[in-house]
Structures are given as structure tokens and as C-alpha cells.
């Protein structure tokens, strides 16, 4: 099930082609180049272009009239009233997503790894929220949480739990926490499946030996499972935190950053600046800030995870 570990490499690649190698030196290029040219044009070029645009005054309303701006976009953005709030909210959103999704995923993967009745059905059902498009997730939850017609508030009122339940997505106090919960509902399955793949690679003998030695279930989990899934766990943390910072659909489709900016993070700010305020220079600047955050996370990951596992790598 897992493709995390490499399938055994059959042979030294290209071992049998030595005779032809002289004649066919250009051959690898023909196979590899098309895909990499496409990626360079559609992923590589825009990254450089966006960094360039962040140093320009550039507006969608006046195409072709770009002028050099130096660092003024950066100065304006960082000095703006909303920026610090947005940056802080992005951090809250990313950290809360990381903690809820990875925390719940550890619990979920642990259950999925047990010998359960109808385990196939359980595993399949749990992944459904992840494969469903975000727009459907938004549709379902906006309906369930609708203040007037939604069943959740009706349930809260009728059961007497809450006299006047809030309009979850429309109130500044509850919008962000609600989105964090919905995000956990959608993304935890993904994290859980990766952790499960890691758990399945732990040799079963280790648990048996520990049980014979009288280790409690908790100690077995802490001393065998946790170290065993270390690589998967690190990868899940990396993809979850970068995925949340880059997340756009998980906010825009629900609240567009509102009400009153209470769910506005860097991605929604950059998008709004570009396509509603038409200020491409400033939007590019905001997106460069996201890019820098990603770089920091990548560097931290590299030093903490890769640095540590050096020499232990298979």
C-alpha cells in the first residue's frame, strides 16, 4: 500500500545499455526534457517573474505601464495596518491546523492500524472528506452551519444547549476557529493515511518482544510506534504546515477572508490585492512573503530532519 519506501531497484540503471551508450548519449534528454521544460515554464518562470513584479508599480488597470518601485511595495506592505494582523492570523491558522490535523491523525492512524471489523470499509469511509473537492466541503458546511436553515444551530437551539447559537461563519469571534475545525475534518484523513503507511512498516516482532518484556500499551506506543513513524511524521508536519500556509480554498470558498478580515491570511490578502484591488506589484510582494515563509520552513525541515537522519539513511 505504501509507496513511501522505494520498490527494490532492479539493477544499476542502464547497465545493459553500455554498448549503445556512445551513440545514445542524447537519449535521456529526449525522455526527461519535455516534462521539465513544461515545469520550468509554468512553475519556474512565474516564481522569478513574481519576485521581479514585487519591485514594480504594476496595476492590472493600467497594463504595460509598469515602473520600477524599488523596495517601496515592501515598505508599504509591512507598514500597512492590516499586514501584522494578517501575518499573525496566518501563523495562528497554520499552527492550529498543524496541531489539530497531525494530533488527530496520530489518533486516527492508531485506530486504523488495529485489527478491526470491516477495516476496509472504515479506511475507505474515513478518506472520503479528503477526496471530495473543497467547493463541496464548503457547500456542505455552509449549509450545516447556516444560521437560519442549518441543522446544527437548530439542534443546538432545540436541545437547549445554546439559547442563541452564533452565526458560526459570519461572526468575527467564531469564523476562524470554525474554519480550523472544518480544515481538520477535510485534511486529517490525508495525514492519517501517511502515518498509517509508516506504522505498517514497523516489524511486528518489536511489539511482541516488548509485550513479553511486560511493556504497557502506552510504553509500546511511545517507544516503538513513535520512533518507527518518525520520517512519516516529519513529512506530514512539513506538508500540513506548508499546505495550510498555501491554503486558499479552505478560506476563500467559505468567507473570502471576512467577516471584517477575521479570517484573512496571506494567500487571501495576495489574491484580493491582485484581482480586486488590481495592484499586481503589491500582490506579488505579499506572495513573496509567503514564499519566504516556505523557504524558512524548508530550511528548518532540512536541518532538523535531514541533518538528523544522516548516516542512518538506507
Amino acid at each position: 500500500m505504501s509507496i513511501l519506501q522505494a520498490p527494490p531497484a532492479a539493477r544499476t540503471p542502464g547497465a545493459g545499455t553500455r554498448v549503445r551508450r556512445r551513440r545514445r548519449r542524447w537519449e535521456p534528454v529526449l525522455y526527461i526534457a519535455p516534462a521539465f521544460v513544461v515545469m520550468a515554464l509554468i512553475i519556474g518562470y512565474p516564481v522569478i517573474s513574481a519576485i521581479g513584479t514585487s519591485f514594480l508599480h504594476s496595476s492590472l488597470a493600467a497594463p504595460g505601464k509598469d515602473s520600477f518601485a524599488g523596495f517601496s511595495n515592501y515598505v508599504d506592505l509591512i507598514g500597512s495596518e492590516e499586514f501584522l494582523g494578517v501575518l499573525g492570523r496566518t501563523a495562528v491558522w497554520a499552527i492550529a491546523s498543524l496541531v489539530t490535523q497531525v494530533g488527530l491523525a496520530l489518533f486516527v492512524a492508531n485506530i486504523l492500524n488495529k485489527k478491526l471489523f470491516a477495516r476496509g470499509f472504515v479506511r475507505t469511509s474515513i478518506i472520503v472528506p479528503w477526496v471530495v473537492p473543497s467547493v463541496i466541503v464548503a457547500l456542505i458546511w455552509r449549509f450545516l452551519l447556516d444560521p437560519a436553515q442549518g441543522p446544527i444551530n437548530a439542534l443546538l437551539r432545540n436541545s437547549g444547549l445554546l439559547e442563541a447559537p452564533p452565526a458560526w461563519l459570519a461572526s468575527t469571534a467564531t469564523a476562524l476557529p470554525t474554519l480550523i475545525v472544518i480544515g481538520a475534518w477535510k485534511w486529517t484523513p490525508f495525514a492519517a493515511v501517511i502515518l498509517l503507511a509508516g506504522m505498517q512498516q514497523i516489524p511486528h516482532e518489536q511489539y511482541e518482544a516488548a509485550t513479553v518484556d511486560g511493556a504497557s500499551a502506552f510504553r509500546r506506543w511511545f517507544h516503538i510506534t513513535l520512533p518507527g513513524i518518525r520520517t512519516s511524521l516529519a513529512l506530514v508536519c512539513l506538508t500540513t504546515i506548508s499546505g495550510s500556509i498555501n491554503n486558499f480554498n479552505g478560506i476563500w470558498l467559505f468567507t473570502r477572508g471576512g467577516p471584517v478580515g477575521s479570517t484573512d491570511i496571506l494567500t487571501t490578502l495576495a489574491y484580493r490585492t491582485a484581482f480586486q484591488d488590481l495592484d499586481l506589484g503589491m500582490a506579488a510582494t505579499a506572495s513573496v512573503v509567503i514564499f519566504v515563509l516556505m523557504l524558512i520552513i524548508a530550511v528548518v525541515y532540512f536541518f532538523v530532519v535531514e541533518g538528523r537522519s544522516k548516516g542512518r539513511r538506507s
Binding site: 512553475i43 516564481v47 513574481a50 506548508s242 498555501n246 494567500t267 491582485a274 500582490a283 524548508a298
Partner: peptide
Amino acid sequence: LLIVVAAQMFPAVMLVIPLYTT
């Protein structure tokens, strides 16, 4: 794997601005 993960980490909202003009 690291290359793939890195490619996935590029902010979509960063790429959309130049791609839109292109």
C-alpha cells in the same frame, strides 16, 4: 521526494499573478 515536495510548496497564489498576465 524532496524535489517533489519542494515543487508542491511553491505558493499557488504566487504563481497565479504572473501566469495570469502570461
